[in-house]
């Protein structure tokens, strides 16, 4: 009977195990003295890149008005049905504004579809990843929590202009 030589057959030195084990031990010993990658969270916080999808927020213009025109596309596209928009009329140029804009953060899956579908660049994903609430009611974020000044979101908006078709 002929035994087929397998691709993975070990050589004599490999079958002794000892040299390979020593190689592995040397590797781990070297690793022990390398700089650590641990980030000590509450003291040191992770600063996400522009591509990061954190909590979705509404862009607030410099005059204090939100960009949103309450078209309801975000709420329509939201796969988790987390967004609720109630439109109303306004004297401003944009004619419509969201009277009520709520995102249920227990439902939100951070997919970013709302941001992608928004024609006004009015809802964007922020870098905020620390979301804590004590009960279900406080998990529903209204306009008071969603509005963020445009200058704080410039990073993400630039990113979107560069990569969003």
């Amino acid at each position: 009977m002929t035994t087929k030589k397998r691709f993975k057959d070990l050589t004599f030195w490999e079958r002794l195990y000892i040299p390979v084990i020593i190689k592995g031990l040397v590797l781990t010993l070297k690793t022990m003295f390398k700089p650590k990658v641990t980030m000590e969270y509450p003291e040191v916080k992770f600063e996400p890149p522009a591509s990061y999808r954190g909590r979705p927020v509404l862009v607030q213009e410099k005059n204090g008005v939100e960009r949103c025109v309450a078209c309801g596309l975000c709420s329509r596209v939201c796969p988790a049905l987390a967004i609720e928009v109630q439109a109303a009329e306004t004297e401003l140029e944009k004619e419509r504004f969201p009277q009520k804009f709520e995102i249920n953060m227990l439902r939100c899956i951070f997919c970013g579809f709302c941001e992608e579908v928004c024609p006004e660049e009015a809802i964007v994903m922020s870098k905020d990843y620390e979301l804590v609430f004590q009960d279900r009611d406080s998990a529903i974020f209204g306009k008071d929590k969603l509005l963020v000044p445009v200058e704080n979101l410039q990073d993400r908006i630039d990113f979107l202009r560069k990569f969003k078709k």
Binding site: T28, T31, M32, F33, K34, P35, K36, V37, T38, E40
Partner: peptide, 13 residues
């Protein structure tokens, strides 16, 4: 601690 160091972590501190 040693497991942490080998895995590039800091371990209990």
């Amino acid at each position: 601690k040693i497991s942490a160091w080998i895995q590039n972590r800091k371990g209990p501190n």
